[in-house]
Design a binder for these strands. Structure first.
Length: 232
DNA sequence: AAGCGATTCAACCGCTCGCCT
DNA sequence: AAGGCGAGCGGTTGAATCGCT
């Protein structure tokens, strides 16, 4: 493994936080509040950058952080959310109380990725080209309610669409007996199929294409057999 | 007990986005 | 409208630890 700098600067690579540094950072944030991390870096007396302070607080020092191994429920939720959202670690972590994006990402890469090799994809839409990954729009937390409510109902049966010629590079979420509390008009009938053309359930970035079908034969979907709903 | 490869996970890096001026 | 800056994100790195021989 070669560092990107290729030895241009003899950086002391890992700079682990010492307990006394943690104490200083925690005390500073408790006194001044979160935010303005550059000021934290300058004023706390820590020889750390703002980013480093932010990361340390967010991932380890926050009082609501849960440490220790993942429960089966948490694992299951991560797997489901990853199917739904791809590598949106912050979004996934946001749905798992006490867990951070870094922790979820590490856990996926070290534990779940092996167990769910089919689930291994860089993003929902980057089956083969990585350059898309860096350009995908960011999803704010305000995008969460719809996708999260679906995931948390346990009704979600996400499956990668593989045979359709009409909606290649999309993936399908089948919702059976759909009873989620959505705030947009949707779902006639008992079985609906969502196809996302390029992105997952990104509520205010994309429209959602709703394929109306009772059949699970995704390959038979016609491009004119769907209705398109736009997020408010 | 020692050596060494594999694994884990804390921390860093580069980039994008959103807000403010 | 454009530029600067801070915050946040996902990918990557590498030190620490584990486990096998």
């Amino acid at each position: 493994m070669e560092s990107k700098g290729m030895g241009l600067k003899p950086q002391p690579k890992k700079n682990l936080w010492k307990p006394e540094e943690d104490v200083v950072l925690k005390a500073y944030i408790e006194a001044h509040g979160e935010g303005n991390w550059e000021a934290v870096s300058r004023n706390s007396g820590l020889n750390r950058g703002g980013k480093s302070c932010r990361l340390r607080w967010k991932n380890y020092l926050r009082p609501d952080i849960k440490r220790g191994g993942m429960s089966e429920d948490e694992e299951d939720l991560i797997i489901r959310l990853h199917k739904l959202l791809g590598n949106r670690w912050s979004l996934i972590a946001g749905r798992i109380p006490g867990r951070t994006d870094n922790e979820v990402k590490n856990y996926w890469n070290t534990h779940l990725n092996k167990r769910c090799p089919r689930g291994k994809r860089k993003t929902i839409d980057s089956n083969n080209d990585d350059q898309e990954t860096s350009k995908k729009p960011r999803i704010s937390d305000s995008d969460l309610p719809i996708s999260a409510s679906i995931a948390e109902t346990g009704l979600l049966d996400a499956r990668k669409e593989e045979n359709s010629s009409n909606i290649t590079s999309s993936w399908i979420v089948e919702l059976q007996s759909f009873h989620c509390d959505l705030d947009f008009p949707i779902v006639p009938g008992n079985s609906a199929v969502f196809g996302f053309d390029d992105e997952p359930f990104t509520t205010n970035l994309d429209s959602i294409v709703l394929f109306e079908t009772d059949a699970l034969d995704y390959g038979s979907l016609e491009s004119n057999s769907h209705k398109q709903y736009f997020m408010p």
